[in-house]
Design a protein around this nucleic acid. Structure first.
Lengths: 332, 332
DNA sequence: TTGCGAATTGATAGCGCTAACACGTAGAAT
DNA sequence: ATTCTACGTGTTAGCGCTATCAATTCGCAA
């Protein structure tokens, strides 16, 4: 840092101010310092920053289900960003009954903010506990039901619509849909996107081809079976996540239907499962690692702001999804 | 720290020495300091330690395949231990062709040691690159083919034998086995354990019921199909990992065989997949998070030691596995 | 022109810990 | 008895950064 300061001909303090985005630095000074930083390839020492600030920011990551297919990629993102930002992560596993007590433990451990991946980000109990504790937190991969607070996610509605359009473009007109868990906001949004895209194409969604699931493999098995029980069955099935799509593939196989020759099946999330099974699933990819990084970034900002008495505006940060076409989809 | 020092009536330096396991501290002094540490609930400030040491230890984690089913839990363990030990983790993804260049990148980035989960820990190229770079590293979940160096793992031989004994105790005598990837040491060990346990029970393994796989779902599909092509087929299938076991379940279903009523199928690893599919797999649980923690611990020790010119003895650290009985296994 | 508050920059003092060396003190070697 | 050595402990001086306040400059109204 001193090198940079000397190079520009100012005191280290000024460099520090530039690094921390302090308001009172002349614009051209800031420019010069930043140029020098880049030129010398300087990067600040997190250990020293934390020490000087006399406190390290601790962020709690509350993860719950083993089916949190996100977890893997989420952790990659968290690990990268946290080591870069120099904050500490406290991992805490949480069941469906003990949200409150786990959150309290995290608070006792002195975390400064909390990361809330699904399905916790849809848990009223968790949300209420966090709100009443007045601790900064951010939802990942879902909006808050109340539309308040901070969240980082993709546009589930638009993603489902996009996937539906892909199915339509392959010539499918009879499309079955397996809905996600009823209590998660993403489920409703994906369903709405599906229905909207059909309508766009002048097709009315058939309610007997829309089956409720819970995001679990088991529920996918049941839903897919139902889809085949009726006299007519669809030529394509769009499941709201990969687990249920994989289950649909299993059901199809058991009924001697080839995927994708006889039946197209697509999923959502692009979890490892999508490429594990055969045929590999066409699915919607969520940039989970990037979401995690962004979430930490925003959370850190909020934590800093709170310590000065202010607070961040409610904010939904959207990242881009993408369609991943693999072997489970084909033309009619 | 000063509090602790005052409490014992010594200088902070002595406390520091106790914390760092310095050799030259009188045993009773060490005891007293440790008692005080516990009593006051003191825990050292990592930021300050790193700053004072004038360098943070950086550990590279080289992960490769998306089928590295371990990754998830591995990351949990890594995250916990690294934040506790105050070292930084550099994640680096690596294909099957570019091990060398990725390792070189890590070295350029100045990592002090490398964590090598499977299947990289069996890659001759990677091993050779690391050895010639003379950088400390540790294999996770596999021993080194050459038996040298550091590794943390379970006893694959014994685990496979245990699982086989379970199958035998359920009355199965005709057991098929799907071998893992030929180039991974764990594959051979699991197979050997299987064969040994059979022999123990006075049963000779039938070579036509031992099929080669590659740990991939796809290979499991093929292997299981072959197992059913023969005139006679086994009443139980032991796959060398969960992906292949899941594939075997799929094949069984396609042939209208109920699992576990008509056929018992068991896996290995206890990855998320084991509980995702239905029926949930009976499998061998590896304590991957604990392995990761232990690996970091050992690696850190080695890094410290190296800086003083010495080096750790070759060491294979074994952790305990356990059998997880779920729905995919039943009596004959 | 003078004065005064706001904006901008600099100087100083640690944050909590550990290297490196300094200083005893007891036992071994002479 | 004297020197030497190793051991056990204390002292000093930062590690790289930021909080805090002091110093300087600037803009602008009186």
């Amino acid at each position: 840092m001193h090198e940079v300061a000397k190079h520009v001909g100012v005191s280290p303090m000024t460099v520090s101010r530039v690094l921390n985005g302090d308001a009172n630095v002349k614009p051209d000074m800031r420019q010069r310092v930043q140029a020098a930083i880049k030129e010398l390839g300087y990067s600040p020492n997190q250990a020293a920053r934390n020490l000087a600030r006399a406190s390290t920011v601790h962020i709690g990551l509350l993860y719950s289900n083993p089916s949190a297919a996100y977890l893997n990629e989420l952790l990659v993102g968290v690990l990268e960003q946290s080591s870069q930002a120099g904050c500490q992560i406290l991992l805490e596993k949480c069941g469906t009954r003990n949200e409150r007590s786990v959150i309290e433990k995290l608070l006792r451990d002195g975390v400064d903010g909390i990361l809330l991946p699904p399905p916790l980000s849809d848990s009223r109990v968790a949300l209420e506990a966090l709100r009443s504790a007045r601790i900064p937190f951010i939802s990942i991969a879902t909006g808050r039901p109340d539309g308040e607070g901070l969240s980082v996610r993709i546009n589930d509605f638009e993603a489902a619509a996009e996937m539906t359009r892909l199915l339509l473009s392959l010539g499918h007109r009879d499309i079955g849909f397996i809905v996600g868990a009823a209590n998660q906001t993403a489920s409703a949004q994906r369903q709405a996107g599906f229905v909207a895209a059909l309508k766009e194409a002048g097709i009315e969604a058939r309610s007997e081809w829309i089956k409720q699931g819970t995001f679990s493999y088991r529920s996918g098995l049941l839903a897919a079976e139902e889809l085949f029980t009726a006299a007519e069955h669809p030529t394509a099935i769009f499941a709201s996540n990969d687990d249920m799509a994989a289950a649909a593939v299993a059901v199809a196989h058991r009924r001697q239907l080839e995927v994708p020759k006889d039946l197209t099946i697509v999923g959502f999330d692009d979890t490892p499962l999508a490429t594990t099974i055969w045929p590999a699933l066409t699915t919607v990819r969520q940039p989970v690692a990037a979401m995690a990084r962004k979430a930490i970034e925003l959370l850190l900002e909020e934590i800093r702001l709170r310590s000065t008495g202010r607070t961040l505006e409610p904010l939904q940060h959207f990242l881009n999804f993408s369609l991943v076409v693999r072997e489970s989809s084909a033309k009619v």
